[in-house]
Write a protein that binds this DNA or RNA. Structure first.
Length: 289
DNA sequence: AACACCCCCTGTCGGC
DNA sequence: TGCCGACAGGGGGTGT
């Protein structure tokens, strides 16, 4: 489910419950998610204070006071539920275990934070913070699309010479990190660019960006920013950490809208679905070139 | 090197 | 109603 806007929304939901708090008790309810949990996972967290909850691309990072970082990835179906402190109710008793609740964090401030993940494509790791940027997961990771660096020039440089379709290039986390299937489809539609166009065509021969490269960089930031403002997208029953729903899905122009009229003014096209590198791409063949 | 493809796992939905 | 295949927001590994 979660692309950058959803993960950032989760981060903001976890922050008040976890940042500055200590793990009072940790329940690990199975041996593995996508990967095995780190050795002595619960014991290594218990008693540790979280200095900050941050995010890199689609990863949530909890910086611990012993120099380690708890790395959390939500995969396709991971979510966190925060049960806030209720006076008079001992917080260890507050959270009721539901199907696919795999980890429960009991925080010193009183909140209970539960990780639920039906498909178990998510994972949690503990790694030393000092060398995190050299870790296999982060070493080759691309730029944050909402950071200062992403503009037409960078996009053109990243894509120069690439024969891969724009769809694949934008999903490549080693170039731009944080986009997923939804926001790539939405961004390409807004930029009127075909998902099948070779990524290298956004750079001129001398490597300078085309106007389309500038436009694409710009709409990516717009789309992600708007999605963030809407609290992300809630597909199926996915919820934010506080239980509320994001509502950006109501603003989808192409994603999961096969057969619908293209929303571009005066276009008259119909949204199509094709498969690219094994995933659905939604786009308008008329106004996306 | 740069792609395309398959897989991990569970739930849901549409078609028959 | 029930069964079955297709598909789902991610990404790592393998093979060409």
């Amino acid at each position: 489910m979660p692309e950058l806007p959803e993960v950032e929304t989760v981060r903001r939901g976890l922050e008040p419950a976890m940042a500055g708090q200590t793990f009072e008790k940790v329940e690990q309810r199975r041996a593995d998610l996508r990967f095995p949990f780190p050795a002595d996972f619960a014991a290594r967290l218990t008693g540790r204070r979280i200095e900050a909850i941050t995010r890199r691309a689609k990863y949530l990072l909890a910086d611990l006071d012993d120099g380690e970082t708890l790395i959390m990835h939500l995969g396709m179906s991971g979510s966190f539920r925060v049960d806030a402190d209720t006076p008079g109710v001992f917080h260890h008793d507050r959270s009721r275990i539901a199907a696919h609740d795999h980890v429960v964090f009991h925080m010193s401030g009183g909140a209970t934070v539960t990780y639920n993940d039906p498909r178990r494509f998510g994972f949690m790791l503990l790694e030393p913070r000092a060398t995190l940027s050299e870790h296999k997961l982060f070493r080759d990771m691309g730029v944050e699309p909402l950071g200062n660096q992403l503009d037409g020039d960078l996009l053109a440089r990243l894509f120069a010479g690439k024969a891969a379709p724009l769809k694949a290039a934008l999903l490549d986390q080693s170039l731009v990190a944080g986009l997923g299937n939804i926001y790539v489809c939405e961004s390409l539609h807004r930029a009127h660019l075909s998902p099948r166009r070779a990524a290298g065509t956004l750079a001129r021969k001398d490597g300078a960006p085309t106007e389309r490269a500038r436009l694409l960089a710009s709409v990516i930031r717009d789309v992600l920013g708007e999605a963030l403002e809407a609290g992300g997208s809630s597909l199926r029953d996915h919820r934010q950490a506080d239980g509320s729903l994001g509502y950006f899905q109501h603003q989808f122009r192409v994603y999961d809208r096969e057969g619908a009229p293209c929303p571009t003014a005066g276009c008259g096209g119909v949204i199509k679905r094709v498969v690219q590198s094994g995933r659905s791409t939604f786009f308008c063949g008329e106004c996306q070139r």
